[in-house]
Design a protein around this nucleic acid. Sequence first.
RNA 1: CGGGGUAUAGUGUAACGGUAGCACGAGUCCUUUGGGAGGAUUUAGUCUCGGUUCAAAUCCGAGUACCCCGACCA
Length: 418
Amino acid sequence: MRQSRYFLKTSKTSPSDDVSVNAKLLEQGGFIYKNSAGIYTFLPLGWRVIQKIAQIIREEMNAIGGQEMFMPALHDKHYLKATGRWDVDVVFKVAGEKGKDPQFNISWTHEEIMSEIAARHVSSYRDLPFATYQIQTKFRNEPRAKSGLLRGREFMMKDLYSFHRDEQDLDKYYEVVKEAYFKIFKRCGLKSYYTLAAGGEFTTNFTHEFQVECPVGEDTIYVCPKCEYAENKEISKLKAGSACPKCGGKVSEKKSVEVGNIFRYGTKYSEPFELRYADEKGEKKLVQTGAYGIGLGRVMGTIVEVCHDGRGIIWPSSIAPFDVHLLAFDNNDSAIAKAAEKTYEALQKLGFSVLYDDRQVSAGVKFADSDLIGLPLRLVVSAKTIQKKSVEVKPRHSDEITMISLNKLATLKDFLEG
RNA sequence: CGGGGUAUAGUGUAACGGUAGCACGAGUCCUUUGGGAGGAUUUAGUCUCGGUUCAAAUCCGAGUACCCCGACCA
């Protein structure tokens, strides 16, 4: 992508009133645009990050048998009325017709929709188990949107729903999803802790959360540094310095962001929607269900909170919007421009995604933008480098500069791993 | 929803109740290109409604929006 033609503008100044690092850097870097409090547009650069995260999630969901689908955002009131959730505070409602009472809610969650569909699908034990998921937008009228992408009123969520004939099968799958979640967050460059938590509006059962240590997080967890056991303060009997219930180590108190949450619903949503199957004896039984959520924007925001320095973002290579930021200095000079173009083509042929800064601006501007945007590798083509038939390479996360000769560009792959 | 704060040009910021200014950006021209370049020139603004006053960006009231703390929540 040629930066001169890209729908991207960075800013020299960060937004005046936002305090959180993710809001500052993502807005300043041209990844997102704030339309209202807690309501963001993902601009082309930011959308590429979301797509990377979505891709990782899809791969891991598909790997555990998840089948992707897509549910509506407008839900007739009968859905939420069936489960007594029509009057939950965060629900946005709209009238079907002007001047009438609200008929629809805008999707704040999809248990009801999915349960009804599942009830039409399932008749026999032979139809079970299965798991479906979607990446969709949730709308929740938060009393207080905050911290950039960390708490929005409109946000993208991956929600997986699983359906089982009995609790044992649900429990088994719950563990499978748990492992998939660890993989997802790890692939996104995040170290996550698995914690026990309460279920809120969703279930009276205990649930489990995936928490990432982060100072602006809204949650507080107790973590054992030895065995990584963790509990959410909400329900924990631990205190800072208590002995870890698993290994006896000393737990410490940390602020954290909940990037994922998994729920065992049991039959809570099966009852209102008559979600039953016939077992081998023809006996009708309620289906056991679970649900598993990940907020994509929140993952993106959390990564920025965890991976940045004073100059900008440092994307993990797995979710960076491009692999390489190619800077051409003095591209008025035709020799330099030509060398940069050639490098740009060569990199793409080798399979790298490249943001090529071909703008007619000073070197300082290009350096500053490159640091701010935070792609894993910065390549410079200049008068100096063409003399040596090389390009200059610097990983965003270090200060080490390497010269790589033009016929060895493939070795850049080594820089991107890990 | 309770508490606190803020609102001036596209962005970031100044202005005692008395001429709305600066920087960046953007446009044009020239010179520039290894850490946010220089000169010339142009561009554009006081959130909304009401009040006080000879005079309001400035004081008062209401509204709206945004930020922060708390409550609540994923």
